[in-house]
Design a binder for these strands. Structure first.
Length: 351
DNA sequence: AACTTCCGCAACCGCAAGATG
DNA sequence: ACATCTTGCGGTTGCGGAAGT
C-alpha cells in the first residue's frame, strides 16, 4: 500500500497541458492503449508523470467525455444521488454518462452547494439547516440586505436583522422533524418582542406590497424545488404565499381574530406537516396556537393540535424581562380554536 | 482604462485499497 | 505474509478570465 513515487520525480513538468502534449497523449493511447500509466509518459515522449497523464486522459481527453453545461436533469440526478451517496463522486459519475467525477465535484462545489445553502438547506444532509447562524445567508437573501444597508441606519438594520432571526426561529419550529416532540426554541425577550411587534414575512397585511418587508415565497426559492421528492414530509414552502392568502381569508372571516389583534400583525401560517394541515397563530405576545383539523374534512372544526405544543418560553435576557432571572411562559390558548372554524368555501376560493 | 475581487475549472496532492510478485 | 506498485478517489490549490469598482 505504498505511495506512488512517480510524482516525486524531479524535472517532470507540472501545470496546464499544452495542445502538443495532449496530441502526443491521445495519439499514443489511441495506438497502444494506456497500458501502465507509469510507463506511458516515456513511451509517449511526454515529460510528465504517469499520474498526470492518467488524470489528463480520464478528466479531459477521453473521447466519450461530454462537455458543456449540466442539464436540469443532470443537476437533479446529482442532487438526488448526493442525498443518498454523499461525496461519492465516482459513484455519482457512474450514473451520468460522459461526466467525470472531477467535473461533478467541481459543479457541486461551485454551484449546487451554494444553491442549497442559499435555500437554507444543509448541503451535506439536504435538510433544512437547524443552526441559526448557518441560515444567515438565507435570511440575508430574504431581507434583501442590500436595500437595507443602503437606505437604513445601523439601528434600523440591527432591528430588522433581529426580526429576521426571530422569523427564522419560528420557521425552525415549523420545520421540525416528526420525532422532535414539538420543542420550541428558547427565544430571549428581545427576539420575542421583535417577533411580536414587527411585521412578519407571514403577516397577513403586508405580504404583498411592502418592498421593505420581504416575503418568503416561491420566488425566494429556486424553482423547481429539487427536494420535493426527498423531503415530502416538510412543509411546502413553495406555496407559502398561497397559504398566506388562506390565512388572510381566515382572518377576514373570523372577526374575533382581527378584533383581538390590535396591531394586525398576527402571524398565521398554514402548513402541511406529515400530511396534516396545521394553522399556526401567534395571537398574543409569547403565545402561539397550533390548530389542526379534527377530521379529514374541509368542514370539520380546527382544534388545538394534540399533543399541544409546549408553552413558548421566554428566557429573562433583557431589561424587559423579570430581573430575578425567572422565566415566563404562557400556554396556547384554546380561545381562538373555539372561534376559528374554517369554512369549506375558503378552500374552494384558493387559486 | 487600470486595478481589484470573484469565480470556475483544470490540475495537483496525498491517502487508501487492490494487484502483483 | 509482506513489500511494493498501481490505480482510484476526494479534498484542495492556483491560474486565468469575468465582473465589479
Amino acid at each position: 500500500m505504498g505511495r506512488s513515487p512517480c510524482c516525486d520525480e524531479i524535472g517532470l513538468k507540472k501545470g496546464p497541458w499544452t495542445p502538443e502534449e495532449d496530441q502526443k497523449l491521445v495519439k499514443y493511447i489511441q495506438k497502444h492503449g494506456h497500458g501502465s500509466w507509469r510507463a506511458l509518459p516515456k513511451l509517449a515522449g511526454l515529460n510528465r508523470c504517469g499520474k498526470s497523464c492518467r488524470l489528463r486522459w480520464t478528466n479531459y481527453l477521453r473521447p466519450d467525455i461530454k462537455r458543456g453545461k449540466f442539464t436540469a436533469e443532470e443537476e437533479q440526478t446529482i442532487l438526488n444521488l448526493h442525498a443518498i451517496l454523499g461525496n461519492k463522486w465516482s459513484a455519482i459519475a457512474n450514473h451520468l454518462p460522459g461526466r467525470t467525477d472531477n467535473e461533478i465535484k467541481n459543479f457541486w462545489n461551485t454551484h449546487l452547494k451554494k444553491k442549497l445553502i442559499q435555500m437554507g438547506f444543509d448541503p451535506m444532509t439536504h435538510r433544512p439547516r437547524t443552526d441559526i447562524f448557518s441560515s444567515l445567508p438565507h435570511l440575508i437573501a430574504l431581507a434583501n440586505l442590500k436595500e437595507l444597508v443602503e437606505n437604513h441606519s445601523w439601528e434600523e438594520q440591527a432591528v430588522r436583522l433581529q426580526t429576521e432571526v426571530a422569523k427564522l426561529h419560528y420557521l425552525q419550529y415549523l420545520l421540525q422533524p416528526p420525532n422532535n416532540n414539538f420543542s420550541m426554541p428558547n427565544l430571549d425577550m428581545d427576539t420575542l418582542n421583535v417577533l411580536n411587534s414587527l411585521p412578519s414575512a407571514f403577516s397577513t397585511k403586508d405580504h404583498t406590497h411592502n418592498p421593505n418587508n420581504p416575503v418568503l415565497n416561491s420566488s425566494s426559492l429556486d424553482s423547481p424545488n429539487p427536494f420535493d421528492s426527498i423531503h415530502d414530509h416538510l412543509p411546502d414552502l413553495k406555496s407559502i404565499e398561497l397559504q398566506t392568502n388562506l390565512i388572510s381569508k381566515v382572518n377576514n372571516n373570523n372577526e374575533n381574530i382581527s378584533n383581538n389583534n390590535n396591531n394586525d400583525d398576527n402571524i398565521g401560517v398554514v402548513t402541511n406537516i406529515h400530511g396534516q394541515d396545521q394553522v399556526v397563530y401567534q395571537h398574543q405576545p409569547c403565545e402561539f396556537t397550533v390548530l389542526t383539523q379534527g377530521e379529514n374534512s374541509p368542514t370539520s372544526p380546527w382544534l388545538p393540535s394534540s399533543p399541544s405544543p409546549p408553552p413558548v418560553t421566554a428566557t429573562a435576557a433583557t431589561s424587559s424581562a423579570p430581573l430575578d432571572g425567572s422565566t415566563t411562559s404562557t400556554t396556547p390558548s384554546s380561545f381562538w380554536a373555539d372561534h376559528l372554524l374554517l369554512e369549506d368555501s375558503l378552500f374552494h376560493d384558493i387559486p
